[in-house]
């Protein structure tokens, strides 16, 4: 008999696919392979039907989502009116901040069509990260870069149009 290993197919497992997807996300870009493997292993694929909410405005949940397939809509309700803020396409990573600490959802995230997400919960994320204490500063740097980058971009391109919002700027000075 041949070595039995040769008989198996070469198709990648869900874990391997997850790992590949995570490596392409900015939020995780600073991480070496070892912690990413654990995130890929601990993350769970979830399937949402069109119209189903991943999370709702005002909720406190502690999950980040990586959109694997499909399309998601971000909404905000105020004064009884629901406004669509933006759409997310496959490859988007949403809710990384909720992996770092409690944060109330300011938006509702809804599946625009049947969508598959890789969901990572804070408890799992932080327990896994504890195994790699040296990675925390890199993660903070990523978050700092994102906030400063966003504000810089806003100041350069959109500050002129936003009128009364100028005095409220300065989130990067937090």
């Amino acid at each position: 008999m041949n070595s039995p290993e040769s008989a198996e197919p070469e198709r990648g497992s869900e874990y391997e696919e997850n790992l590949e997807l995570l490596r392409q996300i900015d939020f995780f870009s600073g991480f070496p392979l070892e912690p990413l493997k654990i995130f890929a292993y601990l993350g769970a694929r979830q399937r949402f039907r069109a119209g189903e909410a991943l999370f709702e405005q005002g909720e406190e949940d502690a999950t980040a989502f990586l959109l694997v397939a499909g399309r998601l809509r971000l909404e905000r309700e105020s004064g009884g009116r629901t406004r669509t803020i933006r759409f997310f396409e496959a490859g988007a990573f949403i809710g990384g901040l909720s992996l770092l600490g409690d944060c109330r959802r300011l938006y509702t995230l809804r599946a625009e069509e049947t969508s598959v997400c890789l969901a990572l919960e804070r408890e799992k994320f932080s327990r896994a990260l504890e195994q790699f204490p040296g990675q925390m500063p890199r993660l903070f740097q990523t978050v700092v870069d994102a906030i400063v980058g966003w504000e810089e971009n806003f100041l350069e391109k959109m500050a002129e149009d936003c009128g009364g919002c100028i005095p409220r700027l300065g989130v990067s000075l937090l």
Binding site: E8, P9, R11, S13, E14, Y15, N18, R45
Partner: peptide
């Protein structure tokens, strides 16, 4: 157990 793909044939 997501670390392995079983394969349709199996």
């Amino acid at each position: 157990h997501k670390m392995l793909e079983l394969g349709d044939e199996l």
